[in-house]
């Protein structure tokens, strides 16, 4: 039951993008096509889960064991950077089209604050190993959900008659605001 609550909390109630405002740059940058946004969501989810697992292991078997908790950020960043590099190699090999569609946003997952945020939250909340994995999956699903919903709306907006000054970034940010507002409906359902 607790695991289920963690999953729902991470993916919907405390959605990383729409309630914590983490990982906004790919959320706005790669949300113009459903296909590529879904792929970016999958890539980010993969990195999130791996990071969650690795950060738990590092935290418990290196940082706490050797009593060097001040190396937390550095070690998590190392994990994230190498995982992103791995994903980039994999995408480049398996789907050059997707590699081109994601462009700069693929390596930018490295500095996606949602991922470092996830690792730090997991440590801060003292999750167990299983809880950490579920937290990672939930956060990834939440990120994918947010970015795909955004892309769906933006695809519809392509055909809409938008006032000239609002075209492009203006309407995108307004829509993001509305989405955040909609997700506020879940606020307080589950705390933290």
């Amino acid at each position: 039951m607790e695991i289920f609550i963690i999953f729902i909390s991470a993916s919907i109630v405390n959605n990383f993008v729409l309630t914590y405002f983490l990982g906004i740059c790919p959320f706005l940058g790669v949300s113009n096509k459903i296909d590529s946004s879904f792929s970016l969501g999958l890539a980010t989810t993969f990195v999130m889960v791996i990071t969650a697992v690795a950060s738990w292991l590092i935290n418990h078997y290196i940082l706490i064991l050797f009593n060097v908790p001040f190396l937390e950020y550095v070690s998590f960043i190392i994990v994230i950077a190498s995982m992103v590099q791995l994903v980039e190699m994999f995408v480049k090999k398996t789907s050059p089209v997707l590699y081109r569609a994601l462009g700069i946003f693929l390596p930018l997952i490295t500095t996606n604050c949602a991922i470092l945020g996830l690792a730090l939250f997991a440590v801060l909340r003292d999750y167990s190993f299983i809880q950490t994995i579920v937290f990672g999956i939930g956060a990834g699903v939440g990120f994918t959900l947010a970015i795909v919903v955004m892309a769906g709306i933006r695809e519809e907006l392509e055909m809409a008659d938008i006032p000239y000054p609002l075209k492009g970034a203006g309407i995108t940010l307004i829509v993001a605001g509305f989405l955040a507002l909609a997700f506020m409906g879940f606020a307080g359902l589950i705390s933290a």
Partner: peptide, 27 residues
């Protein structure tokens, strides 16, 4: 010593992982 060795070990581990991946996935 602990800081150096733990970070060095981590770096080494991930570096070797990437070297291995590069060999497998190079285009």
């Amino acid at each position: 010593l602990l800081g150096l060795s733990s970070m060095g070990g981590l770096g080494l581990f991930f570096a070797s992982l990437l070297v291995f991946a590069d060999k497998k996935l190079r285009v």
